[in-house]
């Protein structure tokens, strides 16, 4: 069956579409790039399929790490899954959970969460123009905004430009829904596994979160200052944790980030002068 059937959605039945998913795996890119009419469900499902790719698997495993961490910290399964759903951003979740588990102040936790949330602003600013024309309804834009976190954002930036504009919002909502579902399943699985598997494997699950964060930061680093922030923040974290527990992440971010910004700009300035 060719996808000419799919591009004439005169009430294409759902069974036909799912058959198409099975048979048209190789030509999905061509299919999505087709600017003609395509059933919205099809575009949405294609977006959801992104969650089955490598980044989706990493995200699911990292949520498993979060679930394991939550179990370890003494959080209830419900609260862990609820937290995953309403934040959909692992750094904020880990920061807040850590703060609560250590009995730190709630205000301090909220401030640290806010600081991790600031990085979402530039992500939003860079992805919204890709989703935009014609400007989608506010409810759809707010839903899309909720799905902006490192993995869905990276996949969005990579895949959206290949699609015709009228299909991008639906496709991205599909990516977000798929990724979100993957994280909720991952959280539940990690939570349950952490309680029942050998200690060594629990430790392995817990280890996924920090290494995933760090490698994602490396993958996203572009400017000199990004690399400096990565190194300085890493170095500041442990001593500040000993010196100012509870406020350590705030300080690591503000001090490390500002030093990296100033030094990075100086460094770029020197390079420009030499040229």
């Amino acid at each position: 069956m060719s996808f000419s059937i799919l591009s004439q959605p005169t009430r294409v039945e759902f069974s036909t579409v799912t058959e198409g998913v099975k048979q048209e795996k190789t030509s999905q890119a061509n299919d999505l790039a087709n600017p003609g009419k395509v059933h919205a469900n099809w575009t949405f499902i294609q977006g959801m399929r992104v969650a089955l790719s490598t980044p989706g698997a990493i995200l699911m495993a990292s949520s498993g790490g979060f679930g394991a961490l939550a179990n370890d910290a003494g959080m209830s399964l419900f609260n862990a899954i609820f937290m995953m759903a309403v934040f959909f951003a692992l750094p904020a979740q880990v920061v807040l959970m850590d703060q609560l588990a250590r009995g730190g102040s709630i205000i301090g936790g909220a401030l640290a969460v806010g600081l991790t949330g600031v990085r979402l602003v530039p992500m939003m600013v860079t992805i919204m123009p890709l989703l935009g024309k014609p400007r989608p309804a506010l409810s759809r834009r707010l839903a899309a905004a909720h799905f902006v976190a490192i993995t869905a954002w990276l996949e969005g930036l990579r895949l959206l430009p290949k699609l015709p504009e009228n299909r991008r919002m639906t496709f991205f909502l599909g990516i977000g829904t798929g990724m979100s579902a993957a994280t909720l399943m991952g959280t539940a699985l990690g939570f349950e596994l952490a309680g029942s598997v050998p200690l060594a494997i629990s430790a392995g699950l817990l280890f996924l979160t920090p290494i995933y964060f760090f490698l994602s930061l490396m993958a996203a680093a572009r400017l000199t200052m990004d690399w400096l922030a990565l190194v300085i923040g890493s170095l500041l974290g442990p001593p500040l944790f000993v010196l100012t527990p509870g406020l350590d992440l705030l300080f690591a971010g503000l001090i490390g980030g500002t030093v990296a910004y100033v030094a990075g700009r100086r460094f770029d300035g020197i390079l420009e002068e030499e040229e």
Binding site: P91, V94, V95, A112, L115, T116, V118, R119, V121, P122, V125, T209, P210, F213, F214, L217, A221, L223, M225, D226, L228, A229, L230, V231, I232, G233, S234, L235, L236, G237, P238, L240, F241, D248, L249, L250, A252, G253, L254, I255, G256, G257, T258, A260, Y261, G264
Partner: peptide
Amino acid sequence: FAWVRAVATALVAGLVTRLVL
């Protein structure tokens, strides 16, 4: 935004080393 990005990066990096150490 460059500064904001640097602060966010340093914060998450600090969290990473704390989680490991």
